[in-house]
Structure formats: C-alpha cells, structure tokens
Amino acid sequence: RAALALALLTIVVSGCKPAPLPDAASPGAQLYANRCGRCHVPYNPHEMTASMWDTQVTMMEVKIQAAGMPALTSDERESILEYLKRNAGTE
C-alpha cells in the first residue's frame, strides 16, 4: 500500500508545473527568471510580501557570491526588486 501511495504521489507531483510568473513578458520578470532561475525555479512573487522580498534578495546575493556567480548589478537588483514588489503578496 505504501509503495502504491508513493508511486501515485510521484506521478501527481511530477505532473505539476509551477504557475507562470505574473507579467511574464516584462523585462523585470524576464531578468528575475534568468538570474534567479539559474539555480532554482523562480518563486511566484505572490508567495512573499514586499518586505520579505527585500530580505530574500539580500540573502540570495550572499548565496550568489558563495557560488562564484556574477553579482547582481545595482540596476539588476533594482529591476528585480521592483518586479517582485509590484507583484508581491499581501500576507
């Protein structure tokens, strides 16, 4: 029974695709998907509040540096944060 449940869960989860990013064609969304999507699937901006995104981007910049990847330029950081905050959740 457990094996069957695990197999079904695997099928269901593997068939799930993340929801598309809001305003996906905008330059901010494309930059966010390109830079953040190098290491992980970009989170939907609605998943965090604007203030949470400030903290998250700062934390990720440390991880970017630790991974030896190019740092965000100030323009990239500003564009990504503007996009995330414009589409952020409220709770």
Rank of each mutant, 00 (worst) to 15 (best):
Q65Y: 05
G15D: 02
P70T: 07
A50W: 01
W53S: 12
A50G: 12
A19W: 01
L9C: 14
L21C: 07
Q56E: 14
S74Q: 14
C36W: 00
W53N: 08
L31K: 05
C16W: 11
L9I: 11
V57L: 15
I11C: 10
I11D: 09
Q30Y: 06
K17G: 13
W53V: 07
A50P: 08
G28I: 00
R38M: 12
S74D: 15
C16H: 13
P42L: 00
Q30W: 03
P20G: 09
L21P: 05
W53P: 09
A71H: 03
A24V: 04
G37A: 03
A25G: 09
T10R: 09
L31I: 08
S14F: 07
G15W: 00
D23F: 05
V57T: 13
G37C: 02
A25T: 11
A33Y: 00
S14M: 08
C16L: 15
Q56L: 15
P18F: 06
A24S: 12
T55L: 12
P45F: 01
G37D: 01
M60Y: 02
I64Q: 03
D54I: 02
A67L: 07
A50V: 04
P20F: 08
W53F: 10
I64D: 04
D54E: 15
C16N: 10
P45R: 00
T49G: 10
R35F: 09
P20I: 05
T73P: 02
P18L: 04
R38T: 13
T58I: 06
S74W: 00
C16D: 08
D75Q: 13
A29I: 01
A50D: 12
Y32I: 08
C36K: 00
E47V: 12
A25K: 01
P42M: 01
K17Y: 13
C39L: 03
A24Y: 00
H46K: 14
V62H: 10
N34C: 11
A66N: 06
T73Y: 01
A25F: 00
T10P: 04
Y43R: 10
V62E: 11
